[in-house]
Design a protein around this nucleic acid. Sequence first.
RNA 1: CGGGCGGUAGCUUAGCUCGGUAAAGCGCCUGGUUUGGGACCAGGAGACCGCGAGUUCGAAUCUCGCCCGCCCGACCA
Length: 477
Amino acid sequence: MKDVTKMSDDFDRWYTDVVRKAELADWSGIRGMMVVRPYGWAMWEAIMRAFDDMIKETGHENWAFPLLIPREYLMKEAEHVEGFAPEVAWVTRAGGDMEELEEPLAVRPTSETIIGPLIKRYIQSHRDLPKLTNQWNSVVRWEMRSRLFLRSREFWWQEGHTFHASAQEAIEEASMILGNYRSIAEDWLAVPVLTGRKSPAETFPGAVHTLTVEGLMKDGLALQMGTSHYFGQNFARAYDISFSNKENERELCYSTSWGISTRLVGALVMAHGDDSGLIVPPKVAPIQVIVVPIYRDDESRAKVERFVNSWAPELKAAGVRHRVDWRDERPGDKYAHWELKGVPIRLNVGGRDADAGQVEMVDRLSRARVSVPISGIGKRLSHELDSFQTKLFDRAQQFQRDSTFELRTLEEVIAHFRERGGLVWADWCGDGEEEARIKAETGGVTIRTIDESAKPSGKCFVCGNPAKYRVALAKAY
RNA sequence: CGGGCGGUAGCUUAGCUCGGUAAAGCGCCUGGUUUGGGACCAGGAGACCGCGAGUUCGAAUCUCGCCCGCCCGACCA
């Protein structure tokens, strides 16, 4: 019953099996709406804590803005409205008699259009800037096709919205946040990412530019793991968010917004998992070490229990999140169970170990069994977890390298993606019509990022004219 | 949102063609034997057969509508 579909047989089914059987999330029965279960939510909590600490460090503050947005507000920034209109859900009735509202209210798909008109009252002077806001909430986007964590009609995220006195400062803000996102992906989730700028077709509606963090999943598809947008004065103009500068002139703010979501839990599943289930990076693992006691009767159980109790407090003291599995199951069941759940390190502890003053340590990556003395166990495990985190990242990075290619023509790109996935670097001229053509002719391959730090050396892979950009191409979720 | 497929116990499914009030495995509960890689024996609980109409003496089964899910496509900042 616990068996999951093999990844190689059907990746999508594997993904769904793992998410559900490892108890991360379920569908709710309400189309496209998911239930995030405690084990999945705990991973999101770890991400929340990490990112919240990062932004507090740089002066950001958490706010709470309304869930519902008056239509009038939503409509003000033309490009933004156009981009979001197809996925907005509306509240049109309320009250016991379900009376029609005078003005429909949009359920926020993102909050630029409610924060804009509300934040302006707190911004009068250049002394009020920068205004660095963030909120942790959920948003609703009326998706037509849903997948657990990756695309659901409601998802949980943070949305940062900042307002600055200069373009320069706002641009720097957006890129600093992108750096934080890279850190969340790489240092916390152990998923190596490409960072860069989005092409025009992929740029957030209303943004001057969008920066992105893109990861590669085990099926060879890319996943957008976070975006950070620079708006210039677009939203400030739409909502008249202005301030008096030092010369006592009225000036429009420059703003940004940025977000990461529960989609990252899906990313971690698809970047690390295997046929036995999840592999959770220690830094976000709800349980980092699982202890499986092995005994045959009350007497041997008591002995193992005494032994475990003698050193378990040391794990806590060392900051190791652990649990002892005293459920009345056979050890083999427990091994399989915790492997499915992706717990990084398991300790098998039986009578023999108690006698020898040691435990048998098994890591989820190698599954090699090593006997380790209980003396200094806390420190040892803490070290093993760090090493596990590193190995997981290295493994993912190796996969990314092995899945990265350099191609020169559209024909090569088409042929490549007919055969396999992965990331393809190519030089591109930047023509907007070509971008649509790439997508159409390759069966959905898109420009995931533009690497602004690299200079193109050759010709555009589509038209052969001199190239302006180095781009990473991939099929994406 | 279009095309295709599906929904029967917690899970996976049989039964549906040919209408007669539901079956199995796994899981769950109880007791016992077990326990260093997914145990075994015995007993037990558990199903408004996705929902609603219709046809019929009688519907899991036939018809229609709706809801939910899966696959393909469109869409997805």
